[in-house]
């Protein structure tokens, strides 16, 4: 049914990978070093018809990981109901969800010189937030938040 790569979670990670800042001696810190995966999140999803007008979707995604984050593998499950309401007109309802696939971000240890070392959100270490407050903004994402319910109607004429 479908073979592809990426997810809303991996898109989120990709967006933040374009940022960066400088250390106090001017050394650049590029987020791409931390948030670029060696292999992207690959998925394969299949459709199996279990009855007339009823199918289930199932599949797996591999997840991905970079130096400072991880997207866990996920199990994709779904149900499709389809019925012809009149000639050449089809209405279908599909529901899909994912199990697993959690996005988690690792913390960094930042050395602020005379202020000491602190556990921080790697991306926000040079931001306005106090080091401890940056931890509240670690990326968290659940694959099940990408669950979808879709109702389609098609009519050929």
């Amino acid at each position: 049914m479908e073979i592809g790569s990426g997810s809303a979670r991996s898109e989120l990670v990709k967006r933040i990978s374009y940022g960066g800042y400088e250390l106090d001696d001017g050394t650049p810190v590029n987020f791409s070093d931390w948030y670029t995966p060696a292999l992207p999140d690959l998925r394969a999803v299949f459709l199996t018809e279990v009855a007339d007008g009823v199918g289930i979707t199932w599949g797996l995604s591999t997840g991905e990981r970079g130096k400072k984050y991880r997207i866990a593998p996920a199990l994709h499950l779904g149900l499709i109901l389809q019925r012809e309401v009149f000639p050449n007109a089809v209405i279908s309802l599909s529901v899909s969800t994912k199990l697993g696939g959690r996005l988690s971000e690792r913390t960094c240890m930042a050395d602020y010189g005379i202020f000491g070392r602190a556990e921080v959100n790697c991306r926000l270490a040079a931001s306005e937030l106090s080091p401890e407050d940056t931890l509240a903004y670690l990326l968290k994402g659940r694959a099940r938040d990408e669950s979808r319910v879709a109702l389609r109607f098609s009519w050929r004429f």
Binding site: E22, L23, C122
Partner: peptide, 8 residues
């Protein structure tokens, strides 16, 4: 630079 970490 004062706001940024020395190392991370």
């Amino acid at each position: 630079r004062a706001l940024a970490p020395s190392s991370i």
